[in-house]
Write a protein that binds this DNA or RNA. Sequence first.
DNA 1: GGTAAAAATATCACATTCTGAGATTTTGGA
DNA 2: TCCAAAATCTCAGAATGTGATATTTTTACC
Lengths: 259, 259
Amino acid sequence: MSSLARALKVLDLFGEETAVLGADEIIARLKYSRPTGYRYVRTLVGAGLLVRARGGYALGPRIIELDWIIRTQDPVLLASRQAVRGLVTATGCDVTQMGLYGERIVTIHHELGPRPLAIGYDRGRTMPLFRGAPSKAIVAFLPRARLERLYRRHGGRGFARFAEEMQAVRRAGYAVSFGELDVGKVGIGAPVFHGARVTGSVCLVLTRAQYDAADRGALVERLLASAARISEALEPVAPEPRPRRRMTASPRSTPRTPA
Amino acid sequence: MSSLARALKVLDLFGEETAVLGADEIIARLKYSRPTGYRYVRTLVGAGLLVRARGGYALGPRIIELDWIIRTQDPVLLASRQAVRGLVTATGCDVTQMGLYGERIVTIHHELGPRPLAIGYDRGRTMPLFRGAPSKAIVAFLPRARLERLYRRHGGRGFARFAEEMQAVRRAGYAVSFGELDVGKVGIGAPVFHGARVTGSVCLVLTRAQYDAADRGALVERLLASAARISEALEPVAPEPRPRRRMTASPRSTPRTPA
DNA sequence: GGTAAAAATATCACATTCTGAGATTTTGGA
DNA sequence: TCCAAAATCTCAGAATGTGATATTTTTACC
């Protein structure tokens, strides 16, 4: 394992319950020598990925900045703002958006409805890959081979059965789940495409009672329309003919405030 | 420069206008050899800090997750939610919160008022250190020595004059700025303390017209009360007595997986 | 303001691990 | 199916990372 990978493991020590870690604890957990541990930490602090905090080190401001960069440029978020707001108004439900990143499905936005549900769908939440409408609405539309690979790596047994369920979702064009993520809640998820491939999903979240009382057909229709609208807004992709010759990058480097 | 630092420079290439970078461009900009560039990128992708995207690489999902970790545990955000909401209701202004991280001041939250101002105060925005009420409300309360060091490193000339201004802010207990960040806007910032040290600020943002029409005394009073309330909620810090003896690390030497 | 403990860095010999030019394989779009 | 671009492999040389201990800097408390 490269020293870079070892150093980046430090970031993995931070978690839902672990905002601050002492240097000694980092060193102990990763079994690094004292100078090495401090060297890694120092470099990460230098890059802003960590900060010194009371009692040790915490995740740093660069992460907040980088998330801002992603957020402000994410084509899905940019293309979907209006559609999502409209969806909330039309349905009265909470709307969530998930993105597929490599082999992870992460919540990228949660637009609160008029009666927000007390559910932790914040941006940054990682979703189970094969459970819940948001994820199913994504993975169902992956190419067969890729789905199988993904499932075997993360899901485990019984792929045939799961593949059937996903085929049903694909035929329907959307996924519904009852209490798979939160008891008493219903999720309806629709895929978002970028060009020909799924890149995420848009989902309605509502209580079981709301679901039973609602005009479900209209709900689904609305959702699918919004998802389609988002996908269309994303369409303008790579219309540029591939350049024959590689362009030489301009030589000046990114200016940055000196440390 | 360590290889770790070199690899992390890749992250600095992404910016406000640069969501996706081709491998060749990364290599060209950083002047790395092809295998080295790809090695770095591969490792960063492995850590989730980058993802493969159409046309190259983009910032990865791990960043979104890490920001979530910061967001959900940030003691300031946790302690201030109520106070900030109250402040918005009471004043009708937008409220922003900034945090001091090492030598950076970063926006950590923007609570929209009833008539949201069209201003980019999103979480993740880095603020100039010595301009605008939010930053002044922070740096004015730094220990003298630290302020001077910070100023000379990032601010430049005329420290004496600046120090005087900051002293005035310190005496007043809050900072006001007129159009220093956005023309036509007024900012009023109050410091937030964690224990004895400044860790951030809470700020009201309003238009010049609103400011002129407002009961400014009441506005400031409200703001200071909220800032104090947040600081108090943060108080419970390190009540644990320091252990007398350092714990001995387990003596077995570092086992390491052979390559 | 001064003091002691803890946190963080410096030192330096050694060898692990990183580097880079070119060839090679894999990917993905028509 | 094919082709071009993207990404990885190989391997010798050497730069760079490593770790035990000593030293400096910071922090917190009086």
